[in-house]
Design a protein around this nucleic acid. Structure first.
Lengths: 221, 221
DNA sequence: TGATCCATGTCAGCAAGCTGTCATGTCGGC
DNA sequence: GCCGACATGACAGCTTGCTGACATGGATCA
């Protein structure tokens, strides 16, 4: 992992970067605010370790400019011991964590792990098929970019079929996942439901496998 | 937002919870490890504040068991001053941040904001959606720059939805985070509350996902 | 103490639209 | 062509969520 270490004290910089390298990080050092800002804005680092007292541009300002530009690279700031006001400011400026000086190398490494772990923990919730796009987080379905309103049952049907794209899903399985009851409906509710969905999302999304169930194909017809 | 405060010192617990409530959190206090573990494992909190020295079950053990069960609720641990080994352990056990005792209420609040913000992927204590701007630090809400006065419940509703911008939030989740009770209201308080907020902040801020809950969309309609 | 304000809960009525049913039409395989 | 599986349109009943009006109760202040 690539780390940008922004620190103007040469001795600290060298100690820390040695420790980081020993732990398998690729380290780049910057000792000046302007330079740090430029690099952080143009390059892609896994983490930034940022000292607040800097020549050129203040560390907080650097951080704020990154965040204002939408950079989400995790940032760990180094603050003077005991100055909790500084920490509050740093955190509110968008820092992911701070470490009061002086610190043990071991502690720095632990916080680095934690910061990185956190920032890499998101999974995508979007599924697509043909022109259809379903965002599970927003429970939003679009057809060629246009928002389509689905009822709760319709939504669950589509979501379950999309989650199982490329596989034939039996009526019983759909019953269980849409209605939550394994009991067989004596009527044709499911077929009606499929019909309503097809009317809203187009006839090609859901294919019928006579005698087996329904299927959202891997490739649109 | 719902907070679980795990602290066995009654005085600290009462001071802190008072401060938290004053800042708009819904606070539940637990003073014993077993109890804390059980609650954290069964209930859904926005954050947990965890003191390490506990009767019953040790704080670290509680945290580890949560993580082992896949709970990702952000946890802020309180440690004795200067014991950095404890911090390292805590962070590697899955804590999201730590705060050395003694601390200022203000700092606790800032770190809480930061931990919560991170875990929901936001970058600043100011959250926006369309023309609406909410500053968690000041508990201030503005609409097109003009200050809007919200009641406590209204504020909590908006804050929770904004913290989860782009995600559908169920009525039950709102209940828990606004009222602090998982119990179902038999009445329509929440709908009334939403209505009141919409009247103050405009009808487009909060979208309804019939049958599922409410949502503040990523992009204004 | 009484007057008043405000936050909050309750309720009833309304509109939208969701959902199951049924009658009837269509399709595919044998 | 026949049969069963599936599709479709219409409709009635019901749910859901929204809204305005009102009740309650706590806080504040004269």
């Amino acid at each position: 992992m690539r780390v940008l270490l922004v620190e103007d004290d040469r001795r600290i910089a060298s100690d820390v970067s040695r420790g980081l390298r020993a732990s398998g990080y690729v380290v780049e050092v910057s000792s000046d605010g302007e330079d740090a800002w430029f690099r952080g804005d143009t390059e892609d680092y896994g983490v930034v370790i940022l000292d607040l007292g800097l020549p050129g541009m203040d560390g907080l300002a650097v951080l704020k400019r990154w965040r204002a530009n939408g950079r989400t690279t995790p940032v760990l700031i180094l603050t003077a011991r005991g100055s909790w006001a500084e920490r509050v400011d740093g955190i509110d400026a968008g820092a992911d964590d701070y470490l009061p000086k002086p610190f043990q190398m071991e502690e720095l490494l632990a916080r680095l792990r934690s910061v990185v772990r956190r920032s890499s923990g998101h999974a995508s919730s979007v599924m697509t098929a043909g022109d259809i796009r379903l965002d599970e987080r927003q429970m939003k379905v679009t057809l060629r970019g246009a928002h389509v309103t689905l009822s709760p049952l319709e939504y669950r049907l589509v979501a379950h079929l999309l989650r199982n794209k490329g596989r034939v899903v039996s009526q019983q399985e759909l019953d269980e996942n849409v209605y939550g009851q394994p009991e067989e409906h004596d009527s044709n509710v499911l077929e009606v439901l499929v019909g309503r969905v097809r009317k809203k999302l187009g006839p090609d999304l859901i294919e019928t496998r006579r005698g087996f169930g329904y299927l959202v194909p891997e490739m649109p017809a």
